[in-house]
Amino acid sequence: MSEISGGSFIARGLLKFGVLFRCFFSERGKDVPFIIENKTFSTEQHEVAVQWNRTFFFSGKNRFFDAVMIHDEKEKRILDYFGKPHLLLSVLSFEAEQNGALKITSGQQWFLIFGKKIPIPKWLRGKSTVYESYHDENACFTIEVNVENDILGTLFYYKGSFQEAGTVE
């Protein structure tokens, strides 16, 4: 990632809790090496799912941002489950931009605690906007992620590029 930034002292303190669930972290930096590993599978309910495991290599420590996206056929929406075990659930919306980028935004969210879905009030949610695209001229993917909260402002921001390395079995 060319940049991982953002978050007030309070926001970064809260993000430290996410390390326990492999979904958020407070470290920041420039030119942070990372790996994204994706794997498709079927859930016990026979839903199509994609596991997204991201590892960020900060000096002296690795941080993780793991999630599982599931297509909810009944509601016709994409659900994003964050963490291991899942701590947070968010509805995602996808749209194509005129420049060919994919824009992903978050919607309704829930905390997942002891098997219960607890709705997160709008003022407490992290509102994410993600832009992903592929650039033929550089043969690489780019990503830009911004997550904000109405009270705390920017929670985190990152941007970078990467190339597909092939499949891992």
Rank of each mutant, 00 (worst) to 15 (best):
K30W: 05
L87F: 15
F156C: 09
K74H: 15
F24C: 08
S26D: 12
V48Q: 14
Q109Y: 03
G6H: 00
F56G: 02
N62M: 11
G83H: 04
G60Q: 06
E164R: 09
P119N: 02
E169S: 10
A101F: 07
I151R: 04
S161W: 14
G6Q: 01
M1Y: 11
N138A: 09
R63D: 08
Q109W: 04
K76L: 10
R125M: 05
F17K: 15
K76P: 01
L88D: 02
G107R: 02
A139S: 14
E169W: 08
A49G: 04
A96R: 15
P33T: 00
L20N: 14
C140A: 12
T142I: 15
L112E: 10
S90K: 09
Y157K: 08
I10F: 11
R28H: 00
E169F: 09
L102Y: 04
K122E: 15
D31V: 04
T154A: 09
H46Y: 13
T154Y: 07
I118M: 01
T142D: 15
S133C: 12
E97Y: 08
I36A: 01
S133Q: 10
I4S: 00
Q163W: 08
H135Y: 11
T105G: 04
G60E: 03
G160A: 06
D72C: 04
V168C: 06
T154K: 11
K30N: 12
F65L: 08
I151K: 07
F58R: 00
E148G: 05
S8N: 06
Q45P: 02
F65Q: 05
G6P: 01
F25A: 03
D136W: 05
L15A: 02
E144K: 14
F141V: 00
A165T: 12
I151T: 06
C140G: 06
G153D: 07
V145M: 07
F111W: 08
E137K: 15
S42C: 06
H46W: 12
S5M: 11
S161K: 13
M69R: 13
G18H: 03
L79M: 11
K76D: 15
F21W: 10
R63C: 13
R125K: 06
L79Q: 12
W110S: 00
P119W: 03
L102V: 10
V91L: 07
V168H: 04
C140D: 13
F162L: 15
I36V: 09
G166R: 05
K127Y: 12
N149S: 10
P85M: 08
Q51P: 00
F34H: 04
E137H: 15
S128N: 09
E44S: 14
V168Q: 08
Y81R: 13
G115Y: 07
S5L: 13
G83C: 05
V147H: 10
I104N: 02
V68I: 15
Q108F: 06
F64D: 01
T40M: 03
G6D: 02
K30V: 09
G153N: 07
